[in-house]
Design a protein around this nucleic acid. Sequence first.
RNA 1: GAUCCCAUAGCUCAGCUGGAUAGAGCAACGGUUUUCUAAACCGUAGGCCUUUGGUUCGAAUCCAAAUGGGAUCACCA
Length: 594
Amino acid sequence: MIEQLLSEKTKEALNSLYGASVETVSFEKTNPDFTGDLTLVVFNFLKISKKKPEDTANEIGNYLKANVSEIADFNVVKGFLNLVISDSYWLNYFNSVKNKDFSSTKLPENAPVVMVEYSSPNTNKPLHLGHVRNNLLGFSVAEILKAAGNKVVKTNIVNDRGIHICKSMLAWQKWGNGETPESSGIKGDHLVGKYYVEFDKHYKLEATDLKAKGMSEEEAEKNAPLVLQTKEMLLKWEKGDKAVRSLWEMMNGWVYKGFDVSYKMMGVDFDKTYYESNTYLLGKNIIDDGLAKGILKRREDNSVFIDLTADGLDEKTLLRSDGTSLYMTQDLGTALQRFEEVHFEKLIFTVANEQDYHFKVLSLILNKLGYSWAKGLHHLSYGMVELPEGKMKSREGTVVDADDLMSEMIKTAEATTKELGKVDNLTEEEAQHLYKTIGLGALKYFLLKVDPKKKMLFNPAESIDFNGNTAPFIMFNYVRVQAMLRKATDAGIHFDSSETMEITSVLPKEKELIIKVHSFETIIQQAAKEFSPALIANYTYDLAKEYSQYYHDTSILKEENNEKKIFRLQLSNMVGNVIKASTKLLGIEVPERM
RNA sequence: GAUCCCAUAGCUCAGCUGGAUAGAGCAACGGUUUUCUAAACCGUAGGCCUUUGGUUCGAAUCCAAAUGGGAUCACCA
């Protein structure tokens, strides 16, 4: 990396010129309005040099030019030292990576293990837009971490038990008339979700009824017959009641079949799937351990808690007075279980920001209990997706359904593609695949290009764009490259040999493209560090945009100089390779034609 | 009441480990096609970077407060 070399040499310069040693020296990309590639801001060194900014910059510049062969020239504007890196440096770099497969990563044996948990669906309803953001984020972060040199284990924990699951079960029992996915033709998860909404409808009626009879709102909500029956059902489930268990298994089975279809459509997968019904009792041994260490305390009524008031938080109960465990207890237990299973360096939880508090407490407790691995826990917190009318609520049916949204996107892609008349040479199968690639790509990019932690507004009335900063634009540029390369191959031009072209100078745009590709590695590392697919998305867009301008202004196949022509083809090929690799990190596939 | 997150063009967002004149896309207006895919390219217009104070040679960026928006603070998950 050129930055590293320059940083070292600058330290050397400061030492030799002013006899001072500086810890870190960093460069930034030169502002496009000035000449140069990298810029050193010298204001920080004035104390050392005891000279004017211009003089300091000039002295450092002279030293670097004399001692670093990669520096072709420099100029000084006020306190800014702009360095021009020689074309030959960039060309050497270009030649070393022009045929590289940017998407392959070879992991060292001892690569750190990172577990990424995402999705975590409930089995009482189908996936909605919020889940889509979660799934895409989790999957993409996993891909990015892989590319950054980690061994990644993708995990899903299915919340398959609990009072909310019993709600749809009870409603189906009461009003389902034996309806099944087969008999109704409704996708399993949607069918179950239908009864979840049904439950809420009846429950609200009951509560209103009780209120009319003089109960307070709170009483009415607690004493609605449906609520009591659900609690009873949960107790039966916990005791292993045969009828309840088999109903549970049947309905969950429908849901899993449905989820599989949605996951496959989204293009996400998991290495491990956990079920809450198997893990909800975990964590009690941690409690015993904490009590023994005196970090957890037992109340008079036998419940167990931890006092976090000294850390600015509250008292957190970890065991009910009847000895049963809670959400937090369970999460403590599963974290420990996972560490014992895979010895992760990091454990990433992809969960919406409404649970920031929960994860803060979780990490704090584990740290207090002295588990050294707990510092590897990270909550990948993302903002909620909101609709113009506010938060989505599954119970009330005000959600953007994941399956509906995806098929809507594919339909839009189909309509647009046909309108542009781009399907003439495709078989029906190829065309269908193309619509899916474009539609889902547009959706994925739309959700991933925004900083994860920001909440996002989705207006279903305004369909997702296909122009500008979008996946179809990026794909379009990839496709243009492929079309051109096919044409070149047909004409018998060999651009993919490792042969080095005798190019001595490059166009400014060509240099920019090489520099852009050069920074791909750094961007991956940064995205991995910040768990941010948005960085990859924006990088890819910038690259595609620059290529688009280059393509527009420069003739490639029509270039008469053969060396230049081949160089340009190689450059295009390289840009295509990077686009393919970086979109892959977002879970986006690129088509070969469109 | 307490804590956490957010605030940049009409809209959606970049930029935030302090640096030069704050960038894209959409929408608006105008232009480019006998030339490698026009889902493209070029141009015009659009900004008290929410406000105030502080730190600094230098602040959209760091600190504090205020305002507005969101979330959380169960022996629910």
